[in-house]
C-alpha cells in the first residue's frame, strides 16, 4: 500500500502541497468568488421580493383609488341630488311667494274696485235723491202749486228712500 509504504517519504510534500492548493482554493475561490455568487443570488431574491411587494402595493393602491373614486362618485351623486331637491324646493317657494304677491295685488285691486263701485253707487244714489227731490218738488209745484223749498223736498225724499 503506497499510502503507508511511502508515507514517511511523501508526507511533507503531500501536506505542503495540500495546504498550498487548499489555501489557494479557500482564499481565491471560497473567500473571493463564492461571496460574489451568493451576493448575486441574494440580490436576485431581493429584487424578486421587491418586485412582488411593488406589484402588491400597486394593486392595493389601485384598489384604494377605486374605492376612493367610488366614495367620491357617491358623494357627488348625493350632492347633485341635494342640489336638485334644493332647486326644486326653491322654485316651489319662489312660485308660492310670487303667487302670494300677485294675490295681494289682485286683492288690493279688487278691494279698490269694490270701493270705487261702492262710491259710484253712493254717488248714483245721491244723484237719484237729488233728481227725486227735484222731481218731487216739481210734482208738488205742478199738482198743488205749492212751492216747496229744496231742503224740505230733499228731506222727504231721503225719508222715503231710506225707509
Amino acid at each position: 500500500m503506497p499510502q503507508i509504504a511511502q508515507f514517511s517519504d511523501t508526507v511533507a510534500s503531500q501536506v505542503f502541497w495540500m495546504l498550498v492548493f487548499f489555501g489557494l482554493i479557500f482564499f481565491v475561490i471560497g473567500r473571493g468568488m463564492v461571496p460574489k455568487v451568493m451576493a448575486t443570488m441574494e440580490a436576485r431574491d431581493q429584487q424578486i421580493a421587491a418586485d412582488l411587494a411593488a406589484a402588491e402595493a400597486a394593486r392595493s393602491a389601485a384598489d384604494a383609488q377605486e374605492e376612493a373614486w367610488r366614495v367620491q362618485a357617491n358623494a357627488q351623486r348625493a350632492e347633485a341630488q341635494a342640489l336638485i331637491a334644493k332647486a326644486k324646493a326653491d322654485a316651489a317657494q319662489a312660485a308660492e311667494a310670487r303667487l302670494a304677491a300677485a294675490n295681494t295685488v289682485i286683492d288690493a285691486r279688487v278691494g279698490e274696485a269694490e270701493g270705487r263701485i261702492a262710491a259710484a253707487r253712493g254717488d248714483a244714489l245721491k244723484e237719484i235723491e237729488t233728481v227725486a227731490a227735484e222731481a218731487a218738488g216739481d210734482i208738488v209745484a205742478r199738482l198743488a202749486g205749492v212751492t216747496v223749498d229744496a231742503a224740505a223736498a230733499q228731506g222727504a225724499v231721503k225719508e222715503v228712500l231710506n225707509g
Binding site: 517519504d9 511523501t10 510534500s13 503531500q14 502541497w17 492548493f21 482554493i25
Partner: peptide
C-alpha cells in the same frame, strides 16, 4: 522537509 512536486500535487493543481 522534502516538498517535491509530485503527481499528487499535480492533480491537486489540476483540481484547483
Amino acid at each position: 522537509y522534502n516538498i517535491a512536486f509530485t503527481n499528487s500535487a499535480l492533480w491537486m493543481a489540476i483540481v484547483s
